[in-house]
Nucleic acid binder design. Structure first.
Lengths: 201, 201
DNA sequence: GTCTATAGCTTGATAGAC
DNA sequence: GTCTATCAAGCTATAGAC
């Protein structure tokens, strides 16, 4: 419900009705509305962060010395683009919530940074190993672009379906995921490869 | 106010107080809360859409026969990344609102499509001319990535500042804009250039 | 056009029975 | 733990004086 209408767009009464309990019970367990929201958020973030960190560790170990941008991105994104996960309404809604939070001007940046910066820093370290001459600054700019494309994907807002007359579908994660990797890997290379250092990669 | 807290996160009382009028006056001019929101939205969208269409027309005329992805993107993005515009709080807030709307699961896609599809279709036509062998499908997927990166930029959520320890700033549009073009141009090329047609571009 | 006043609901939260 | 009942405050919207 939060993912569909935002924090203020849902009432505790609606949530309680959906859970078939009374609003008093929500207060019993979560104190206030914000407490409920935080619980929803934190529970799934914790699961994802472990999976993503493990995926990147495994990748780094298995391909030590021969890291690629594509490989690092696949490890980083894997738990977010797993088709099985996108068939689960609970996860799908959480992804949409993350997308909404991400583009929220006042607290979005702070919340995303607080919960996701460790995994993102790990990704950037992996890519820095894959491209040793990359300027750190450009890695951050590149990640920003990746993050935007990823969050719009997770929002599942249906825009692409309308724009393309149903040639492509926002929800088609099997089609989207490999293209996200390909698009962003090329983008990373374009940014980190300065004109001053021709032919570095 | 809508851009900071969302439609439901702001009350007509707060808006009226901010405008130093009474809530009754808001109803006199805009009927209901939704009417006010729509007016805020539509007014600036109209300005942007004209500018962007003109910019792309001018580019197409000036470079007929020698179109590039970078050139098309610059024309498409120019009115959104103009530093002067980003110094204006009214425009900055509108951009943040667009970013929030974009990642809203229920109506975001529909609204964005309704208001922006004409300019986006024009962009895609330009890029299709620049890369005649590109598959239409891949142009749409590519635009999706561009759109995500752009909207996160416009959200101005401050995440990049925290992630990079102030090495990069979300609000630094002069740094961001050329990188957005470079990153996405490379992404477009990577997606539209199929492995089956090596060396097309 | 702009205000005062207020209707009619809905909200988040709590007290207290069981 | 779960409910009923309810409060005080807030909400959008309107009626009507000026």
């Amino acid at each position: 419900m939060f993912s569909q209408h935002g924090f203020h767009g849902v009432t505790l009464r609606e949530i309680a009705a959906g859970a078939r309990v009374d609003t008093a019970l929500l207060h019993y367990y979560f104190q206030h509305k914000q407490g409920l929201f935080d619980a929803v958020w934190a529970r799934r973030v914790a699961v994802l962060n472990v999976e993503r960190m493990v995926a990147m560790d495994n990748y780094a170990r298995a391909h030590a010395g021969a890291l690629t941008i594509e490989g690092a991105l696949e490890a980083f994104l894997g738990p977010l683009t797993d088709p099985a996960r996108h068939r689960d309404p609970g996860w799908r809604n959480f992804f949409a919530l993350a997308a909404l939070v991400s583009n929220s001007a006042v607290w979005g940046g702070e919340v995303m940074a607080r919960f996701f910066d460790p995994v993102v820093r790990r990704l950037i370290d992996l890519i820095a190993q894959a491209i040793p001459l990359a300027r750190r600054e450009e890695l951050f700019w590149s990640y920003h672009m990746l993050s935007g494309a990823l969050m719009l994907t997770l929002s599942n807002n249906g825009r692409l379906d309308l724009l393309s007359n149903d040639l492509c579908h926002t929800s088609d994660i099997e089609q989207m995921a490999p293209r996200l990797v390909k698009f962003c890997a090329a983008g990373f290379r374009a940014l980190v490869q300065p004109a001053e250092l021709p032919g570095t990669c």
